[in-house]
Amino acid sequence: MAEGAIRLEGRQQELLGARIGGGRYQIIQIHGTGGFGETYIAEDLHRPDRPKCVVKKLSPSSREPKHLKLARRLFQREAETLEKLGNQHDQIPQLLAYFEEETEFYLVQEFIAGHPLSNELPLGHQLPETKVLAILREILQVLGFVHSQHVIHRDIKPSNLIRRAHDTHLVLIDFGAVKGLQTAGDDEFVSDLTIGIGTQGYMAPEQQAGHPQFNSDIYAVGMMAVQMLTGIAPSQLPRDADTGEIDWQDKTHASVGLVNVVQKMMAYHYKQRYQSTDEALQALKKLSLHTTLPSMLSDLLQDAMPGQEEVQATQPWPTAFEEGDDLPPTQPPPTQ
């Protein structure tokens, strides 16, 4: 067993059954770990049916007053964002509680039963174009609401979208990296929170430099579209040394119309992208019937011939990888 798996198993045993929040929430599983802390699945013992919930613990790296102040602001901002967004949109988890215990901070959120979108994107498998279009429209619609509340998510990726079990809608999770639009006069700690947060491969260039824009989220959606259309993880796609653009168009069978829309979504410079989710949605709607009809026919043929291999298939990794090499993961584990 790998060393990391052994540590996680030991941590599971250590925390299993532990209670937090004045004894209200009983941990039943570690859901994920990261640089800022841990995420648990817990049961709410103060409710008769003991429903599951997601508990995020933020552990400051230092107990120095300056660092605790920064952690408190990060914690409070995520709580405020979830409170505002989750209460107004069905595809964003609701905030149930937040509290501080022994200089560690906890957020309690609605548990979303389902599976991460990353489960639907195996390496080497290209999704049919009609499915890609449906996914893009749904993500952009949810993002449109988020942006209307003056919030940039900054960590759009397949593992942060949950396919909800009861209705198959996509739910956007993990608002720990959000950035609200700031006004002049905000203190240095808030601006510090904007630096270098996101996931490599999906993160726009300006976001990596600490200057996220609303359409930095659109860039991430575009990178997800490329992953769906090529079957290749974003980190494995080459970038043009002169332009900075990702080279991917020759690795998909998608229509020219969709390729052009996706390319504009993920243009290297943010001023050359769609400036809003509405613009991107309108571009998707304007794709002509001639663009999507071949893909629709392909989908129908695929459904009519179960057991046949998908015609849209690629090799999961570049030829640079030799047999027996350890293949790198495509992205971090899902968190809520």
Rank of each mutant, 00 (worst) to 15 (best):
F175A: 02
Q263W: 05
G222N: 02
L193F: 15
A280C: 11
A71F: 01
S288V: 00
T33C: 03
Q282E: 15
D155T: 00
I27H: 02
M203A: 03
A254D: 11
S61T: 08
D44W: 15
D167A: 03
K271N: 03
L127I: 10
S59D: 12
Q88M: 10
S59V: 12
Q227S: 12
Q331E: 14
P294A: 01
N260R: 15
S288K: 08
T252A: 06
K66W: 14
T330F: 00
I6F: 12
E245Y: 03
V178N: 04
H147V: 10
D155R: 00
P316V: 09
Q109C: 07
S61G: 15
Q76G: 09
L289R: 09
S255G: 15
I27Q: 02
T291M: 06
W248D: 09
I139R: 00
G22D: 08
Q141P: 00
Q91T: 04
F75G: 04
E38S: 09
E78D: 11
F321E: 13
F111N: 03
L96V: 01
S59G: 04
Q109T: 09
R72I: 01
L281N: 07
M224N: 01
K157Y: 02
Y270K: 05
D186V: 13
A280K: 11
G231W: 11
W248Q: 05
S159E: 13
G17E: 04
Q88Y: 05
I112A: 02
A220L: 07
S59Q: 12
Y40L: 15
I41L: 13
R164N: 04
Y270T: 14
D44L: 10
L143V: 09
Q308H: 10
G86N: 13
L85F: 11
G114Q: 04
E310C: 09
H169F: 08
T319I: 14
Y270L: 08
A177C: 14
E206V: 04
H125A: 05
A184W: 14
Q94I: 09
L127W: 14
T330R: 02
T314Q: 10
L123T: 10
V178S: 06
I218H: 01
H31V: 01
E102F: 06
L117W: 14
F111E: 07
E310V: 02
D174N: 11
A283S: 09
I152F: 04
D167L: 09
L172S: 06
V108N: 08
V221R: 05
I6P: 00
K157W: 03
Q263P: 03
A18V: 03
F145S: 11
I246D: 00
T183R: 08
V262N: 13
Q275P: 08
S298K: 11
E323W: 09
D303I: 03
E138K: 13
N119T: 05
S59R: 13
F214R: 13
H269I: 04
P333L: 02
